[in-house]
Amino acid sequence: MISIHNIAKRYRTDEVETTALNGLSLEVKPGEFVAIMGPSGCGKSTLLNILGLLDEADGGQFLLDGIDVSRYNENRRAELRMEKIGFVFQNFNLIDELTVYENVELPLLYNGIKAGERKKRVEYVLDKVQIMHRRNHYPTQLSGGQQQRVAVARAVINQPAIILADEPTGNLDSQNGNEVMQLLTELNESGTTIVMVTHSEHDARFSHRIVRMLDGQTVAESVLV
């Protein structure tokens, strides 16, 4: 599903150059649930952004479903994101001016799905994440856990093959965190590939495999199932 080889990423400011990824390689199989762990600044989020085609690597190869997407332009990357990838962020990143329903509906609008089909799919997903009763509320009217459930609903609405989750429970209490992790597990069980960045050993245990990073490289892997 995902295959990266020798990926490098450096950030430059006027005076400082920081190496975020330093020749990193990783394989993720279809249907796999991979957790990426490591100390702050080790390059976890950078890796996730590159996997999500939000950022470009400075070197190396990135194969998605066997196709080299490293040199894709922004328009093709946007299309791929829409078709194949769903994102879940630590700080939810919902649009405050849109209701729960409208936030979840947004990817379908970009995908050109007709109104009737949209309604059906949004209601189905909202029901699945148990937030249907708050469909007309705005994000600021919801608790953190509820907001993250909406974010998960939005991530899966286009039925992506991959979900990339960046510390999905980082802003949640343990009960809400568990609920979100349960949701991700269910998605994975239904066939969605998940790559999750996390600081939490507890959350990582929901995955099949834990990849540990340090200074932009993978340093250890442990298979849980």
């Binding site: 999500g52 939000l54 946007a78 299309e79 994101r81 829409m82 078709e83 649009i95 970009y110």
Partner: peptide
Amino acid sequence: AKEVGVRKAIGSKRKH
């Protein structure tokens, strides 16, 4: 800015 980021992440092209 956040809205722009979110829209881009879920597949919006710049022209959109």
